[in-house]
Design a protein around this nucleic acid. Sequence first.
DNA 1: GAGTGGTCTAGACCACTCG
DNA 2: GAGTGGTCTAGACCACTCC
Lengths: 250, 250
Amino acid sequence: MSDTWKKPIRKSGAVPMYIQVAEILDTAVKSRGDATYALPSEGELSREFGVSRVTVRQALKQLETRGVIYSEHGRGYFKTASRMRGVSGFHSFTSEVRRLGGTPSSAIIDYRDGEKLPARFQGHLEASSDNSADFIFLRRVRSIDGNPVAIEDAYLPARLYPSATRAIFEGSSLYDEMTSTWGIVPTWTDALFEPVAANAEEAALLQIAEGSPVITVWRVTVTDTDQAVEYVRSVYKGDGFMLNVNRYRL
Amino acid sequence: MSDTWKKPIRKSGAVPMYIQVAEILDTAVKSRGDATYALPSEGELSREFGVSRVTVRQALKQLETRGVIYSEHGRGYFKTASRMRGVSGFHSFTSEVRRLGGTPSSAIIDYRDGEKLPARFQGHLEASSDNSADFIFLRRVRSIDGNPVAIEDAYLPARLYPSATRAIFEGSSLYDEMTSTWGIVPTWTDALFEPVAANAEEAALLQIAEGSPVITVWRVTVTDTDQAVEYVRSVYKGDGFMLNVNRYRL
DNA sequence: GAGTGGTCTAGACCACTCG
DNA sequence: GAGTGGTCTAGACCACTCC
């Protein structure tokens, strides 16, 4: 492992050195399957990359808080074992489904401007937004191998997404678009899970019987500076499909 | 805020200084309601506590990764707004219910030694434990104001909990007991959510009609060194009760 | 320009693991 | 005892915010 990179760390560049180190280690670690194994020591990494030990530690701690690696005093750093199953309700639907060997698809079936945030979000999520603000509404149906598994209604604060159009959201992942087009980085999410029986509309969209058990999820997503950038209400069907929440920090 | 503590930081004690600082700030911040506000600057804290700026930052970063505060470059540190609603499926049931003004109760209705981990955990969670290991089995019914809302089946690896008895688990929270009695600190959890119709047994325990929509949660909890310490299968009823997942890091 | 957080360094000492 | 991570320091320079 220790010779796959060639000290490509750029000093005094736009990207901090510890971020560069963290990303190199992250991809190196992830490209090695699911088993756990030891990383090079702090001293080794410090020499390899030509940065101070403090900087190496800053990179390692970042990976540690993400749950990618962990450390044991006096022994070293180790990759955490992967325990993933099911499809994440919070991360990229597309990549998660692919990882599990399925073919994901996502269709926007409704798009509206100038919507208000439904009152139920307020009650459920303590939304601190003022009621008069405008939102973009986006309804998507997500499918695996052609079978619909979820309905997602997203409400995006309009002022954060200037010149948004339906077309922009058609192509790529919503989170990718947030980041690349508007510089918005989703960092935390708070969610509520509710077991309910599917109503007629949901049943039709998910191709299940009315009254089938489904999960409704209400959530709000915020940036690292605690700004709400997305309110989502999702309906997930069961029947083999499972929603996952991975690496939740207790 | 800046004069409520009196530099009680103990150097060279058993507890690292940055942990002491973090805990003081954590309780100070939490004792001030839900609104956001600014914390003292790094320099101020450094002088107040008589520790270096690096140490102060170490404390602040810890609170940041927990989602308690956030920083804005050139402006300062701020408390994050609270967005909590519903009852957490992952944290202390007791304290969460109390916070919402309810009266929680929890009854152990089954306790067994020498159990094996059911095969379904293996399929769902990629449990890496060997099949021959012994587990302690604990079934609890949790109620709010006397109304049952959840069934929790926990499987604890027996070798991690020497001399465990049913009585030990009767009194306090499972996580509290893990930490105080066995020194086990639950840090991460991976979970799968599945919408299902309640079967006869579940319906009886939750006092709902058979076939009512419920959520089944399969999860594994690990320590900071990635050791599995608990496998849990829970069944949550709906009908006003909502399961929450708070401050999930994307 | 003053104040704030963000990054980085060299160096020290300690606690823990393992042979 | 050698090697590892854990904690802590003083000091430097930069980028950003706000007046």
